[in-house]
Amino acid sequence: MRLLAENISVARGGQIFFSGISFSLSSGEALVVSGPNGVGKSTLLRVLAGLLPDAQGAVTLEGGPYETVAEASHYLGHHNGMKPELTVSENLDFWQKFMINEANAQDHRVLSVPDAVAAVGLEGVAHLPFGYLSAGQKRRIAMARLMTSFRPVWILDEPTAALDLASRHMFADLVEDQLEAGGMVIAATHQPLGFEKAQNLVLMPDEDARLSHEDPFADPEAG
């Protein structure tokens, strides 16, 4: 499977956010989007997820049973998509039933709700209302949602912002599993995510975006 983005441009209110962004991503690859605040990282991810209908350019997914990139994707934005009034397992249970479809119901990569909660290391909280959790715990439960149904593409917006070091390692492992299973991961971040091989897309204001295989978070002295 291959994800192709061609010449994506976004203009809002007469101001061009970014233009001419192209990249291609094959199964098992990750793309890390970085750049200063306000440069349009989240906007780019929303374009990829099909949530900005007036964006220019084309995003296509080749070689899969999916018609659009949106339905092939898990999107984890700034918000977690969970109801504070419902318990953690009620929330995850709903998303599992809502998102799972015939095509992937039997997929071995799909975890049951208790297994997904265990995979993010929060076994003890499944019976609590989601609103009782801390910011980091909420984020980890939102990540557990990605495992309760299978989508080949993960689109993640600052996934590790509220996480402690151990949880960041846990998250890197989850991403590694997803890539090994032939999935793709696109993440916007300000922090090094610890992906082993990833393309990097650096967005800069008033400049063309550049695509590199160098890690923008690498320590210059170590190299």
């Binding site: 997820a49 099909g50 949530l51 018609e67 949106a70 339905e71 994707s73 999107y75 934005g77 700034h78 918000h79 977690n80 998509g81 969970m82 109801k83 504070p84 998303w95 809502f98 998102m99 479809n101």
Partner: peptide, 16 residues
């Protein structure tokens, strides 16, 4: 409104 505020609406819009 609540679904939009907590991000659920985005996920619903993306489904098949």
């Amino acid at each position: 409104q609540h679904d939009r505020e907590d991000g659920s609406l985005d996920i619903m819009l993306m489904q098949e």
